[in-house]
Amino acid sequence: MRLTCPHCGERPHDEFAYRGDATLRRPDPAAPADPEAEHSFVYLRDNPVAGHREHWLHAFGCRTLLVVTRDPATHAIRSIELAAP
């Protein structure tokens, strides 16, 4: 599997550090405490077979955090974007 970094081009994936599911959103810290939302944010995952949005940090490259959309059953890459454009 190779990932195309928007800055560095196509690179082997072991240059990148995996950072897991990119769809999770931390509940608003200012909002009233919602244990269900916290539980879901910290522990529950969709774990899809296709179209997984996930964070990869280009650790041995430009050190940019990327959002990669990939099919975990085939490793086909659908898109790669900057996490913070």
């Binding site: 599997m1 082997p12 994936h13 072991d14 995996y18 774990n47 077979v49 997984h52 996930e54 990869w56 975990p72 059953a73 085939t74 490793h75």
Partner: peptide, 13 residues
């Protein structure tokens, strides 16, 4: 291998 996978087949790294 260190990233989500249903492939039942691993990578070279």
């Amino acid at each position: 291998d260190g990233y989500n996978s249903y492939a039942r087949r691993g990578g070279l790294p």
